[in-house]
Design a protein around this nucleic acid. Structure first.
Ligand code: FES
Ligand code: FES
Lengths: 153, 153
DNA sequence: AGTTAATAGTACCAACTTGGTACTGATTAC
DNA sequence: GTAATCAGTACCAAGTTGGTACTATTAACT
């Protein structure tokens, strides 16, 4: 249903815990799991991936933990999706070029690429820092279709 | 991977076949499966759903077939997604309110609702008729974040 | 040095979802 | 009445995903 995985959802939730603190907060997996009320193994699994993908920095050993690799306003929702859910592709044909038999004659192929890119850019415009507070409604202002005569036809 | 189901992808492809013809074209499932180079049973299954959801009109019996229930510029990509993939919800918490334990304390809940709504509106702005031709790049014009001071902070 | 607290990595499984097929019944044109 | 076509349902195999368990490695503290 055009749904991102729960892992990504959790991931954003967890990262938001860091983002709320301005001073490069360090948290252990255990602390995070308590804060977010999520099962520890799951949290641990997600944090490992986020570290591998460069969104978190880890510190091992006693009193270790995780902290953000970049400032909260430099990490976007699209970044998190890319790290946990893989490349952003709304249709299969977008990230598996050549895998579709009717690709050569497909009338909607290029349009999907464009739509995909547009949605990606929208999500890439929302940072973790933004997520820590209520966004204002005109988050991604959509202009009217005035430039496009098709709707009125 | 934030992906819509193949069925929805196919559905849009099939509907686009109708949309390309201005004159309320009627096509049988067999004809469509040949045009789109998709297996007939799959095409048939999808067309049934689209009919039940009110996007297509069906005519049974010999020389029967399907045709668009509305004009191509009155059916949006979001309509098709809604028909084949169910309610548009990027996260589980959006369409399953109350199912999430941390809902009461969730810092990102309202933001997800807003983001979800924004993306939905963007897809609801693209009609089948649009899909029959290459869209121009500023499809969904994203204004800069000038109104939002957070990015610059 | 030894102990403890923490992450890294991997492997695994059960449950759900999805793409795809098959079959039977109902309706209409000719 | 016969053939063509849609309607509905049931079914299955394969892939994906959420979730868990276990071992190895690293670092702080005493
Ligand atoms: S369906 Fe694969 S490219 Fe259009
Ligand atoms: S995680 Fe369910 S409402 Fe935020």
């Amino acid at each position: 249903m055009i749904r991102m995985s729960k892992q990504t959802d959790y991931g954003i939730l967890l990262l938001t815990e860091f983002a709320a603190d301005p001073g490069g907060l360090t948290l252990s997996a255990r602390e995070l799991s308590e804060r977010a009320a999520l099962p520890l193994p799951m949290v641990s699994k997600i944090l490992k991936v986020l570290t591998r993908e460069g969104l978190l920095l880890s510190h091992r050993g006693a009193r270790g933990g995780y902290r953000l690799a970049r400032r909260p306003n430099q990490i976007t929702v699209a970044d998190v999706i890319g790290a946990l859910d893989g490349p952003f592709a709304m249709t299969e044909c977008v990230d598996a070029p050549g895998d579709c038999r009717q690709e050569s004659t497909c009338p909607v192929r290029t349009n999907w690429h464009l739509i995909n890119h547009t949605v990606y850019k929208a999500l890439d415009n929302i940072t973790l820092w933004d997520m820590t507070r209520p966004l204002s409604p005109p988050l991604i202002p959509l202009t009217g279709r005035s430039a496009n005569p098709l709707k009125v036809a």
